[in-house]
Structure formats: C-alpha cells, structure tokens
C-alpha cells in the first residue's frame, strides 16, 4: 500500500467542515477496499470496520476527523466580489493573496484580494469582511454557476516533497491521521484479533464538533483512540508548547484522557521500539478527545498526536516516518490489547 499516494488522494477530496457529505462518496470509494464494511453514521461521519468475525466482540474506535478548514460565502456583491466568513479557523496570515476554490455547482478558482497595502499602509492581519474573493465572473455569472450564501470555499491543495522525507500541503490536518489509522489496519491485516476495529472519519472537529459524539454513539465503542495532528516544533517555538518533529507520535497526558490507556501506549512504544513522545495538555487536548468524558457515560480514550509544522496554513508539513510510526503505535496497541489467544483483555 502506497500510504503517501492514498494521503494525496484523500487530500484531493474536498470535505470542508460542515460540508463533509459532498466528498463522502469519494472517500468511501477510496477507503472501502481496505475494510469489511463501510457506512455513513451520525452527522456526516464515515465508519470503516475491520471485523474479527466473533460475536459480541469488543470494539475499538480510531477517530480521525474528516473535515477541513475553509471559508464560507456570506454575500455576492454587485461587482462580482464575494465576501466570506470563516469555516473553522484558518491561520489569518494565509487569508489574503492566496488561491482558493469556490465549491459551487462546479469548482471555480478564486484569489483573495484586499485594498493595496501600498495605498492603505495597513500591516494588520486581514479581518473577515475586509477582504474579498475575486473570480473574474460577474454577479449574474456567479449566480448561474450556483454560488450562493453558504457556498463553501477551500484552499489550494497542491503538495510537494521537501528534504528528509517531509511533505507539505494543506489539509494534512487531519487526513494524515486518517491514513495513520489505515496504516494500523493494514499492519493488523493478518493478525488474529478479538475485537472489531472501527476507523471513524468524523465531521466538524474544526467547527462545532457535531460529528464525533453522534458518530461514536452509532458505534458504542469500548475504547477510543483519537488521532489528530499535534503542534510540531519549529526554530522559533518553545519546547513546552510543541512536540518534536521526526521523533514519532505524541501521546497526550490530560485530565480528559484515560490513565491506563495512555500509560499502555507509552510502554508499548518503548517495548516495541517505536519512537514516541509525551505531550502535556493538562486541561484540554483541543481535539475530539475533549468530548469523550461526556460520551455514552464515558469511554476510555487516549489521544495520539501526529507532529505537524505550520498547522492551519496551506503549507502544513509532516515527516513520512512520523506518519508510519503513528500507524505502527496504533497497531501495536490494538495487538497488545485485543490480540488473538487472549491478549491483555483477558
């Protein structure tokens, strides 16, 4: 399985926060071959299940969010410019002088424009309502093309390889983690398991979180591994706020995550010599794991982070080896916990 190719294909499908259904069919087609069963559930979530074939088997849920950050059209001006608001929260530095795609009846290319800084001398971050999308089309042409209040807009999706096995591009967050889940399932392919493994691609993590609780309620899992990107260190950041790039997935220690699961993950990483690191988010993980304590009476949940630089920009950058090791750690945990002939569960 060419993991980086699948990541590229997955990233090429627009699944903007709240508009995941538009890409659902494509994502289902892409990932279904690797699972026994796939379906939609909850609010725009996709569930992919690898079954162990045993009745009433426990279920472990791997959650990665499907949704992406973007913009939403709030008005069409008479001169054809589009005003927009935020869908999730993109890094504001990327909002102007960028290329976007307006997802109407067909996709339209647009550039984001602002009054020239040479005239305004404005050096502040752009505000919503004070920059526009320019498509070169008139208001009538835009209306005919199906552009309306509420049409979603996404960033440019191009990707390139950098040095040391690093890749950049928009929407590594959180499609890389979906691929990490896929890698885990691929590694477990021929292993006897005592559990069903469900990969959930949840909706709206970047906005209102409607996907995770509703999708998980449709599964009723016994354990949850939330996989999301984690802020990677760059030369100008502080170590206490970030995790190290290229040194494996992070396991989050937080009041919102389960002690036993967290400890087991770190121990297994040591035993199996999978690089991993500890991340400390005392109060909140800032991921879907945050709503777990309130889910279905509480489900033991761990939060695994894939180190990512320049988060929420169009040049999100990750190491291929971190991606592979995240998959390896998930697989190693599931095998330890629910492996055939007993596993730790008995």
């Amino acid at each position: 399985m060419d993991y980086m190719k699948i990541l590229d294909e997955l990233r090429s499908v627009p699944t903007l926060s709240g508009f995941e259904d538009r890409g659902a069919e494509d994502v289902l087609k892409l990932l279904s071959p690797y699972f026994d069963e796939s379906r939609r559930a909850g609010v725009n979530c996709l569930l992919f299940t690898k079954k162990c074939g045993k009745e009433n088997a426990p279920k472990i849920l791997i959650d990665a969010h499907l949704d992406e950050l973007g913009l939403i059209v709030t008005d069409l001006k008479d001169d054809g410019l589009l005003t927009v608001s935020s869908l999730g929260g993109m890094d504001k530095r990327t909002l102007t002088a960028s290329v976007f795609t307006v997802h109407a009846a067909k996709d339209l290319r647009a550039v984001s424009v602002k009054k020239p800084y040479l005239i305004t001398k404005d050096k502040k971050l752009p505000k919503y309502g004070e920059f526009w999308l320019f498509t070169g089309l008139s208001k009538t042409e835009l209306t005919d093309a199906g552009v309306r209040v509420g049409t979603p807009v996404s960033c440019q999706r191009s990707t390139e390889k950098l040095g040391e096995g690093q890749y950049y591009g928009a929407y590594m967050d959180d499609k890389s983690c979906a691929v990490a889940g896929l890698i885990a399932v691929d590694l477990l392919r021929d292993k006897p398991l005592e559990c069903d493994v469900v990969l959930m691609l949840s909706s709206q993590e970047e906005s209102f979180g409607a996907g995770f609780p509703t999708g998980a309620a449709a599964v009723c899992p016994d354990e949850i591994l939330v996989v999301d990107v984690d802020l990677g260190s760059t030369p100008e950041t502080d170590d206490k706020d970030t995790v190290k790039m290229g040194e494996g997935p992070s396991v989050t220690v937080s009041v919102q995550t389960d002690r036993r699961l967290t400890k087991d993950l770190l121990r297994i990483a040591r035993e199996k010599e999978i690089p991993a690191q500890t991340a400390l988010c005392v109060k909140s993980t800032g991921t879907n794991a945050s709503s777990s304590p309130f889910l279905l009476g509480g489900v033991p949940t761990a939060c695994i982070g894939l180190p990512l630089k320049y988060m929420h920009t169009t040049v999100e950058t990750l190491y291929e080896k971190d991606l592979i090791n995240t998959g390896k750690l998930i697989a190693a945990y599931i095998e330890y916990r629910f492996g055939g002939k007993g596993g730790a569960q008995q």
Binding site: S17, G18, F19, D21, R22, V43, N44, I72, T74, D75, L76, T83, S85, L87, G129, V149, G150, Q204, S207, F208, A210
Partner: peptide, 27 residues
C-alpha cells in the same frame, strides 16, 4: 454589520451560525 439578510425578503433558511453548520441536504 454586513449580512445578506433583509426584512421582507422572506423566511431565512439557516446555513450556519456560531453554534452550528446546518445539514446541506436539508437546507
């Protein structure tokens, strides 16, 4: 504040507010 909603132009079908992104199909 700029908003593409006016009095007298009919029922406003919600696409998004600061608590929800509404179901595209139902909208």
């Amino acid at each position: 504040s700029p908003m593409a909603v006016s009095l007298g132009k009919g029922a406003a079908i919600k696409v998004k507010d600061s608590s929800v992104i509404c179901d595209g199909g139902f909208v």
